[in-house]
Amino acid sequence: MKLSPGLAETIIVHAREEFPNECCGLVAGRDGVATRVLPAINTEGTPFMYVMDPREQMDLMEQIEDSGEDLLAIYHSHTRSAAYPSKTDVELAFFAEPLYVIVSLQDENTPVIRAFHLERSAAEGEQITEQPVEIN
């Protein structure tokens, strides 16, 4: 996935605004190039979990579809751990096509953004596949 520095910054700013709670949102794009970041509400409002507001989720997905863009990624933050999917992230990864982007604020001065394909129904050891994030 290609992400402009400005859009990467939007995700990081969202994560910092919600800190210490997790943030979440969507990334729209075309042909693997991000065009928009759409921040959403984490209805859990905790440092340990995110659940996107379902109605907002539906609205944002329809917005992306209606504009002819693709849902490139679902993003969320890890405020105390690395930018790598947790067991819960994998168990709740219903979306096989979009990437799951994780921004880690474990080191608050050096946020890390990584992206993964997650397949919850795949065999253990084959559920997580990292995909490159090109920020430029």
Binding site: E22, C24, L26, A40, E44, P47, F48, M49, Y50, V51, M52, P54, Q57, M58, I74, H76, H78, T79, R80, S81, P85, S86, T88, D89, L92, A93, F94, F95, Y100
Partner: peptide, 11 residues
């Protein structure tokens, strides 16, 4: 009816 899997996870 609309079926909507959640976008959710946790660390």
């Amino acid at each position: 009816l609309l079926i909507l899997p959640a976008m959710a996870g946790g660390q």
